[in-house]
């Protein structure tokens, strides 16, 4: 399969990636536009980034978003790692079908449904809506992604790895911390990053579950976008895209390294 790319292949790739990237590239370029108009290039300027720093609303929304993302992704990683471990290693138990259903369903569930149902649950439980409820909601859907990432990493290693540790005298708990966890670490890290960006990104579920005083960045962006395209939003977007791109590239490199290790371990 190392055949040279045909003209067809090259065309497909170039147009495909142009389609995927051109809108983002345009957005980034126009965030440096001196003109307020989005179609006319008025020269290079970083004034919109400056304006951003002045914008109290955006700054506090960014702070809320980051807090929610940090806390929710950390909890989601712990719970999701457990869930992935259960899916990959615990064999069958009563209620397993329901469990795996609850792991896979949130990933395809329309966000409006997830958001509405969580909100109603919070109202029923009489939990005050705010940062706390957004965080709980984000933990819930992020943990499913972590579970799937961890599970797919675990299934590439056979059970024998953990059995060998126990055979050599490690108790189940020590087996987990000394063998399983180091082996799935790359998946845990990329699961955390995935949760973090999912939380950073979420508009719909946050809108449903937030309360007064808890406005996340996507909610802020959304309310402004409805009024039209503005260079400030372009600037915020550019910053977010830059952060996420950096994170993803690091995560992919970690994952690639880990894959190389595991491939070499399983000829």
């Amino acid at each position: 399969m190392h055949s040279r790319l045909s003209a067809f292949n090259i065309t497909a790739l170039v147009t495909g990636f142009a389609f995927l990237y051109l809108p983002i590239v345009i957005l980034v370029i126009f965030s440096f536009n001196a003109s307020r108009l989005v179609t006319v290039w008025g020269g290079f300027s970083t004034q919109w980034y400056g304006a951003l720093l002045e914008n109290e609303g955006i700054r506090s929304a960014a702070a809320v978003t980051l807090k929610v993302a940090l806390i929710s992704s950390t909890f989601a990683t712990v719970l999701g790692t457990l869930a992935g471990l259960i899916l990959a290693r615990f064999g069958s138990f009563r209620g397993r079908t329901l469990f795996s259903g609850m792991i896979y369903a949130p990933m395809v569930m329309p966000e409006v449904i997830t958001g509405l149902s969580l909100l109603l649950a919070f109202v029923a439980l009489a939990i005050d809506r705010g940062m706390m409820t957004i965080t709980l909601a984000h933990i819930t859907f992020s943990l499913c992604y972590v579970a799937v990432v961890v599970q797919s990493r675990l299934v590439t290693f056979d059970n024998a790895l953990e059995e060998a540790a126990m055979d050599l005298g490690a108790t189940p708990a020590r087996t987990f911390f000394q063998v399983t966890l180091p082996v799935i670490m790359p998946a845990v890290v990329s699961g955390w990053l995935l949760s973090f960006t999912l939380s950073l990104d979420d508009l719909v579920i946050a809108s449903f579950t937030s309360g007064p005083g808890a406005t996340t960045l996507p909610m802020k962006i959304y309310s402004q976008v409805r009024l039209g395209v503005t260079p400030e939003i372009n600037a915020v977007s550019t910053i977010i895209v830059g952060l996420v791109a950096g994170g993803v590239i690091i995560a992919s490199l970690i994952a690639k390294q880990a894959r190389r290790d595991s491939d070499a371990n399983h000829p």
Binding site: D158, A160, A165, V179, P182
Partner: peptide
């Protein structure tokens, strides 16, 4: 983990 018996695995199961 408490048996005085050890096993050599078919896949070797070396910790990567």
């Amino acid at each position: 983990y408490a048996r005085p018996v050890n096993m050599m695995f078919q896949s070797y199961a070396l910790f990567p």
